[in-house]
């Protein structure tokens, strides 16, 4: 099956179907990327273009965008297909493949990427951003939080950190059953990294904590649910209880860091 898919993808590459659609058709623009919806072989495919920023010098701009694309395709929980890795180093390839086989993390499927144009093609994830969901639904905070927590823990257990966790980077499918694994998916691995120290994991948690606090004030259930869900899942890992203790100990340090810093340069 995988072989078949590879050939399929290679064919598509040769026929140059993977071309970023014209600007103006983007259906979503974030701080760093535009998303386009396009059809390839009758399937809906998302093209994510990390566009150039006019404000920074060309060298730095290219470096940052390419690094983000590499992070995304290399470290992400994408369900991987061989063809996407043709241009990656052997080391990165084996690392990524290993990770892929490891855990079943709901995320878009990587179809293709191009470093020159900084575009990543991926499968479409059904649902809406958790941020928008939270603004409409008031009685599911604990549950949604817990699912996000479990997902973040799964990412950490798979050996990497996300780096940019916000409620906008989780997609929820309200139609899926509450308990099902595919209800909440995670997107945008542009700032992810494979250095899984307690520090990085704690920073990951803290970034999401802060984002929840500012984007959804007075929704404490969300944060509480998230931390509870995370604890439960992370304990399942190797030396889970010890790991949980270490990460949360570090989280205290990270939380206090900004507040204690002297503001004298």
């Amino acid at each position: 099956m995988i072989v078949f898919q590879s050939i399929l993808i290679l064919n598509l590459q040769m026929t140059e179907q993977y071309v970023c659609p014209e600007s103006g058709e983007s259906f979503c623009q974030g701080a760093e990327a535009r998303l386009y919806l396009t059809k390839i072989n009758g399937n809906e495919v998302i093209c994510k273009e990390r566009f150039s920023k006019k404000y920074r010098v060309a060298e730095l701009d290219k470096h940052i965008r390419q690094t983000n694309v590499k992070n995304e395709v290399r470290e992400s929980a994408f369900e991987r297909i061989e063809a996407g890795y043709l241009s990656l180093s052997v080391k990165a390839k084996s690392r990524a493949l290993k990770k892929c086989a490891q855990k079943n993390i709901p995320a878009p499927r990587l179809l293709h990427f191009d470093l020159e144009s900084c575009c990543v093609f991926m499968s479409k994830v059904k649902g809406i951003a958790v941020k928008n969901f939270i603004d409409k639904v008031y009685d599911a905070d604990g549950n949604v939080g817990a699912q996000i927590g479990a997902l973040v823990a799964a990412i950490h257990l798979a050996g990497f950190v996300h780096g940019d966790l916000t409620t906008s980077n989780f997609i929820i499918n309200p139609e899926a059953e509450a308990g099902s694994n595919s209800r909440v998916s995670v997107i945008d691995f542009g700032l992810s990294s494979t250095t899984s120290t307690e520090e990085n994991r704690a920073v990951d948690l803290h970034v999401l904590e802060k984002a929840m606090e500012s984007a959804h004030p007075k929704r404490d259930g969300l944060t509480t649910g998230f931390l509870t869900g995370y604890r439960e899942k992370i304990r399942e890992g190797k030396n889970g209880v010890e790991l949980e203790r270490k990460i949360f100990q570090r989280l205290e340090v990270v939380r206090a860091r900004g507040r204690k810093r002297s503001m004298v340069g």
Partner: peptide, 8 residues
Amino acid sequence: MLPYVIKG
């Protein structure tokens, strides 16, 4: 090229 350091 210099280091580019953003954490969160």
